[in-house]
Design a protein around this nucleic acid. Structure first.
Lengths: 312, 312
DNA sequence: TGCCGCGATTGAAAATTTCTATCGAACTCG
DNA sequence: CGAGTTCGATAGAAATTTTCAATCGCGGCA
């Protein structure tokens, strides 16, 4: 609706579609004021918009008693439709714009931290093909990615395909995560050509925080050795983990491709971990809507291309 | 938008969805004035609505030089999206209404003339289950049915499933058309227990007009005998055909089920036609949209039930 | 009890609709 | 070829709606 943060004057119309967006914002924020802010309108405007929806349907959509409580069953259904209709309306605008002016706009992506390294192989050729497209890329947990996707706050995600229930999405498998031990060359295990999980579990590790699926996967692999892993440091930032490993006082476990792109100096080594390999598939996740937005269609094509080059 | 033909005063707002309906009306009518009338607004209002769409997209949607010409490629795409979005918006309203007040509203159906007899077995149990639902049933050619369906002017159709390309629809097969000769008992062939196509072709026939698929099917069957059929009278009204056959001076060919419901008096006989049987499947046709409107979902369930009872 | 956060309400200003009436271009037909 | 028509765009006026800022009033919480 309002694409710009501020408008000079009041008075651009909110139509049904915008009101459905109000409802979606309310679902995210669970707070009229914040939802209004997110939509770029004042709280009374958003309140009125929701009330108008309720009037046209003749049904209460939101339970509220002096504050937001939750949605009524009807509200949940309207919300479902809202996501679809709003998404289609956006797709339409994007497609028509693309027909006239070529592919343009901003592609919003959310990526699981361990897959951050796979973004560049997608974006670089994408941008080569479609120079007018801009990118916003967020690092998020796999759960958050699905939520963002659901709420149309991102166009696509890069996440684990074979774990959480994904919902109504289309997927493009990209590669399997295989884990490596990242250590300084002069520290314990630093001289090895390969290590076992049983060995890894003995060194002090820095890993992602437990809300990350990667952390849960690795922790399971570590615990399967029967020994309690020693996770000395955790963070949600891969850069932070990396900077600690570089000191030689910590080690980390990360996917091979990520380790590779972090730039292995001679002080840092990435050592294959042998043993059971409950590797997890990482891939592109897009809303299962037909037809896709042109931006997403191009992204999917790009992902297919990348997947083909990744002999797995 | 305006569901009532007339409003007391001007001034109920047209939002984006209504403007998309303007575009759909324009596609049907190919005339701004008539489209406006169909939408219940004046011609300047509809013109302005279309122009607003064009402004927001920044693209011309309609080619017009002093009169409507056609849609631009972008216009065609918008039209496609319009059908989807408008359809979804209606589904949403209907679903929410059904949640609160039970299944209600008007189910709009278009039926191929020879299948008119199959409507009652659908509507009667439907209405028993959902007494609040009202029906509008049109007799149309199979081609018109697909157009009406495309334009969201009907909710479902009852037509031939295995001939024309159907488009993006869901189908429920109901029964195969098998043909019978309808004649007065005291006229030629009137005393037979069965006849062949070669015999049928010799009597003066009254059939549907050639724009009807049934006519084309039967004509093909007749011509396959190698003899030029004698089609003395044609009409688009089954009742008219029936009234002529009753005189004993004409005969007709019609589906068994239809002949049966026309009420065979002792003067009128329905005689099986033996020989090649290029029978055609008749069934329910609904928009291939997920989820369906509640009215359509119920109709589909009803059709499945009826189909099950028709041992074919 | 008093305070604070939240959402609904109020009231006025502003913008956008809508309509009717009319225009101007292009076609039709005598 | 010119008058009459048809069609869609435009102008102008009236009405409705929208928006926002300010404020209210209910509940929870100290």
């Amino acid at each position: 609706m309002r694409s710009n943060p501020k408008r000079a004057v009041q008075g651009d119309q909110v139509d049904v579609i915008d009101k459905l967006e109000f409802l979606m914002a309310l679902a995210r924020e669970r707070h009229f004021g914040r939802a209004a802010e997110a939509c770029g309108v004042t709280q009374p405007t958003l309140s009125a918009g929701v009330k108008q929806l309720e009037d046209t349907f003749g049904v209460l959509l939101v339970n509220r008693g002096s504050r937001f409580q939750d949605f009524t069953p009807e509200g949940e259904r309207v919300l479902d439709w809202a996501r679809r209709i709003v998404g289609d309306a956006r797709s339409m605008r994007q497609e028509i714009h693309a027909l006239k002016h070529g592919l343009a706009g901003r592609l919003r992506l959310a990526v699981v931290p361990t897959a951050l390294a796979m973004v560049e192989p997608l974006t670089t050729p994408y941008r080569a093909r479609h120079p007018e497209v801009q990118f916003t890329i967020l690092s998020r947990t796999s759960i958050e990615i699905l939520e963002l996707l659901e709420n149309l706050q991102i166009d696509a995600g890069l996440t684990y395909l074979d774990n959480e229930p994904l919902g109504r999405v289309t997927t493009v498998p990209l590669y399997r995560e295989r884990y490596r031990l990242l250590v300084a060359a002069d520290s314990e295990l630093g001289d090895r050509d390969e290590v076992t999980w049983a060995e890894v579990v003995r060194v002090p590790l820095c890993l992602l925080t437990p809300d990350m699926q990667n952390r849960r996967i690795i922790e399971r692999l570590l615990r399967d050795t029967g020994i309690e892993p020693n996770i000395t440091l955790e963070s949600d930032s891969m850069i932070l983990l990396y900077s600690h490993v570089r000191t030689g006082r910590w080690a980390s476990v990360m996917p091979a491709r990520l380790a590779a792109t972090l730039g292995l100096t001679d002080v840092l080594r990435s050592i294959p971990i042998v043993g059971f390999d409950s590797s997890h598939m990482i891939g592109l996740v897009l809303p299962a809507r037909e037809p896709m937005t042109p931006l997403n269609a191009a992204l999917m094509a790009e992902a297919r291309r990348v997947a083909a080059t990744l002999a797995d």
